[in-house]
Design a binder for these strands. Structure first.
Length: 262
DNA sequence: ATGTCCACCGGAGGTGGA
């Protein structure tokens, strides 16, 4: 069995229903994981997605903020969620395919502006969130599992436009990278995107604030696809659809794709 | 490093979050 998967921080699924449909039409991933839906589950516009073949969904939502959804052409059953760091936010949902593969869809807290636990509660919550992810995956090591989402951390030097200039910028600080590495190690996770594309600058997010995001190209790789060790070899064909960042009224994130042959 | 976009509330534009 083979399927393609994409992960995309959509920054409001209701405002960008048309962009989601365009991705479904143009790229047709079997499974599309969305973050920042900013919608209660019952208000996600499903009709067009159904018409395009995405007849299955598992999702968690809340009014105005956060929210994660897995839209799928393949049957998928709800495999639960966990409120890491007890924030009361809709930031994680898991789904299970008929072949037994579990997909975890995450929206890790952004962490505010100041990278200091004492001065910034949001940064503290981000680190706590990652610590609880680590503990959870350590206690039940994932098998036949995929983890995707907006992890809000660009771990490698070549995952940001300037390693030196971003060392003290939230998303690329050493303490965040260490916390993310601990999640990977505890779960036996492997970075599928970087296994496929090991060399060179690679970004999935460009700020809205830049005058010309494409020319300035001050991006970061905040969106990730990971696989558990037992299925890592099944993953290939990763790519980032940079074009989507240039679509009309875009999300500030581009979709990240991978294929799995299982 | 940069300075835009989105949702909420409420019925305009301020506020919080990213």
């Amino acid at each position: 069995m083979s399927f393609t998967l994409a992960t995309w921080n959509i920054n409001s699924v209701r405002l960008r229903e048309g962009l989601v449909a365009r991705l479904m039409e143009d790229e047709a991933p079997d499974i599309l994981c969305l973050q920042e839906c900013k919608s209660p589950v019952e208000k996600i516009p499903l009709e067009r997605f159904h018409e395009l073949g995405y007849t299955h969904m598992v999702a968690r939502g809340q009014k105005g903020y956060n929210g994660v959804a897995i839209l799928s052409k393949l049957p998928i059953e709800d495999a639960g969620d966990k409120d890491f760091a007890s924030l009361g936010h809709a930031r994680h949902v898991a789904g299970r395919l008929e072949n037994g593969v579990t997909i975890h869809n995450f929206y890790v807290p952004a962490g505010g502006d100041v990278p200091d636990r004492e001065k910034n509660e949001k940064f503290s919550q981000k680190l706590d969130y990652l610590t609880e992810m680590r503990d959870w995956f350590r206690d039940s090591r994932p098998e036949k599992a995929i983890l995707v989402g907006d992890l809000n951390i660009a771990p490698r030097e070549d995952d940001v436009w300037s390693h030196k200039q971003l060392l003290k910028i939230v998303s690329h600080t050493p303490v965040e990278v260490e916390h993310l590495d601990n999640v990977m190690e505890a779960g036996g996770w492997h970075d599928v995107t970087r296994a496929d594309i090991p060399e060179g600058q690679l970004y999935s997010w460009w700020s809205y604030r830049a005058r010309d995001w494409d020319t300035a190209d001050k991006g970061r790789r905040l969106d990730h696809v990971w696989a558990s060790g037992d299925i890592r070899a099944a993953a290939h064909g990763s790519r980032i659809l940079r074009d989507a960042r240039g679509w009309e009224k875009p999300s500030d994130h581009a979709p990240v794709f991978a294929q799995f042959d299982l």
